Amino acid sequence: SHFELRVGTITLHFDNISEELAEELEKLAKNGVHADEIRRWWEEWLK
């Protein structure tokens, strides 16, 4: 499923992401983690 995450002024787009993972990314964003860090985390997870 597709997921969009708003982090400050940036909107990150994720394809084929589980609800659980989407929730984890939302938690990171709410805790003030920068969009670049979240994207890096996601790319690492995909490997």
Rank of each mutant, 00 (worst) to 15 (best):
H2P: 08
R6Q: 15
F14A: 02
E4P: 04
S18Q: 04
L5Y: 03
D36Y: 05
F3G: 02
W42V: 05
I17R: 00
G32R: 02
D15F: 15
V7S: 01
G8T: 06
W41T: 13
A35K: 02
K47R: 12
K27D: 11
S1H: 13
E24V: 13
W45Y: 15
I38L: 07
V33H: 13
E44F: 06
S18Y: 03
S18W: 03
F14C: 00
R6N: 15
H13E: 07
A35M: 06
D15L: 12
E19A: 14
E23I: 13
E43S: 08
E37K: 07
R6W: 12
I38R: 00
F14V: 02
H2W: 07
L46Y: 09
K47L: 13
K30S: 13
L46D: 07
G32C: 02
L46T: 09
D15M: 12
R40S: 12
L21E: 09
F14D: 00
L12C: 02
K27E: 10
L28Y: 05
A35P: 13
A29Q: 04
N31R: 14
K30I: 10
E44N: 10
H34G: 15
E24N: 07
L28N: 02
E4D: 03
E26H: 11
K47W: 11
E4R: 02
D15W: 15
A35T: 06
K27W: 10
N16D: 10
H13S: 08
L21P: 01
L5V: 07
W45D: 02
N31H: 11
V33D: 04
I38F: 05
L28A: 07
W41I: 13
D15Y: 15
L46W: 09
L46M: 11
L28G: 02
H34S: 15
I17C: 04
I17T: 02
L12P: 00
L25E: 00
K30V: 09
A22Q: 14
F3H: 02
F3Q: 01
I10N: 03
L25V: 05
F14L: 03
R6H: 15
E26W: 06
H34F: 09
R40G: 08
S18H: 05
I10S: 07
E44M: 07
F14W: 04
S18I: 03
H34E: 14
G8L: 03
I17N: 01
W45M: 09
F14Y: 02
K30N: 13
W41D: 02
N16C: 04
I10M: 06
S1E: 09
F3K: 03
W42Q: 02
W41G: 03
E37P: 03
E26P: 00
L28K: 07
L5R: 00
G32N: 11
A22P: 01
W41F: 14
D36P: 05
H13V: 15
L25I: 10
G8A: 02
